[in-house]
Design a protein around this nucleic acid. Structure first.
Lengths: 202, 202
DNA sequence: CTCCTGTTTGGGAGTAACTGTCATTAGTGT
DNA sequence: ACACTAATGACAGTTACTCCCAAACAGGAG
């Protein structure tokens, strides 16, 4: 066990850096091509070509074409942010603040990226479909958070129901956002969760 | 314009009946094979073989492998049932009664079918994914119903939020049901919507 | 520097879900 | 019986994805 990172590099050696760069390059080229030519009209081979890697390598980094669009690193951040909210807050409020906290610290670039992905994810059937896997994972995560704050187990049906409602209103916000381009995602998510906390009265 | 249906046949002629029978046979064999061999280990050709049709015909009836599991005829029934609830009921209550009304009139066989599908839809990634398309459509349908009852437009964000919450709690009920086989789907859906109407208090 | 080890990559063969086309068959209205 | 349309079948082609094996390469030990 000699020191793993001798100098400035905070995480790892050249190997992993190269890997990360390759991965980023692939995703970058993929999103570019999807934007230029359309998702369906872009083949995995073209993406591999553009990123100057073999098709094998592409599939090792991204297990599916959908993953090229849907993969991001925000979910763990949001979960952490929700968890670290003051304990006296209710679950919905904690999640609301957690989400908005993460959004606030994002660059304009990253936000634009999210919008592109969301538009793709809504307009391309196979992507729209693949999103549910993310949604299901999100429901599980939310269930855990809700259970923690309520002092109940994740098996509690009331907890599951609330988690479902939370993800439901957030999904509705996202869909509304894509259909109304002039709106702002944060504001909608904020509104939706606030509306939920007030009991969804019309 | 001579009379389309001369005798007792309420809808159509032999051609469409045959078509419907072929379609039903395909789906039946598909679900059987999926149950026996597993979804991934069953090919479209095997299904075509088992239903005694060509692969072409299979794809004409079901545009994708997922559609074989996810296609059903209940959504329009449920929508109709919700619409025909007394006008004085709130949206959530109308939907609750509409859904339970349809479920009540279903045979044990049909219910078992639904269970098999739900289990497949949860356990098989590509199906889990494809469900979101159904979910999105359901959210749109629910949005319409909610808007009607609230005397608002479908563009109203509060309406969209409520619709999202309704589908969210129903999805949560379905997921809970699959994870807790001893529970009853109706009861869970009923509970979930009732919980929602009471404001999702823990 | 040199060898050794484990990881990343590339290449190629193979599978299976689709797609499109065209000829054939089978119901339907006249 | 005859024409018309809808359903089917057969076939070739595309593409996402998997498996496998060999080459290149980074990192540590002698």
């Amino acid at each position: 066990m000699t020191e793993p990172q001798p100098k400035g590099s905070p995480t790892v050696g050249r190997r992993e850096r190269k890997k990360a760069r390759t991965r980023a390059a692939i995703q970058h080229e993929a999103l570019r091509l999807f934007g230029e030519k359309g998702y369906d009209r872009t083949t995995m081979e073209e993406i591999a070509e553009a990123a100057d890697v073999s098709a094998s390598t592409l599939f090792r980094h991204f297990s599916s074409k959908e993953a090229l669009v849907l993969t991001d690193e925000y979910d763990p951040l949001i979960i952490g942010a929700c968890r670290s909210q003051p304990a006296e807050l209710g679950a919905v409020e904690a999640i609301r603040r957690g989400i908005l906290g993460v959004f606030e610290h994002m660059s304009e670039e990253a936000l634009a990226d999210i919008r592109v992905r969301a538009e793709l994810a809504v307009s391309v059937p196979s992507l729209r479909a693949a999103m549910l896997d993310q949604l299901a994972q999100a429901i599980r995560d939310v269930t855990t958070i809700v259970a923690e704050r309520a002092g109940r187990t994740s098996d509690d049906f009331a907890v599951a129901t609330l988690a479902g409602a939370i993800m439901g209103v957030m999904l509705a916000a996202e869909l509304y956002w894509v259909e109304h381009p002039e709106s702002e995602l944060f504001a909608l998510v904020d509104d939706a969760l606030a509306h939920l906390e007030r009991g969804l009265t019309l």
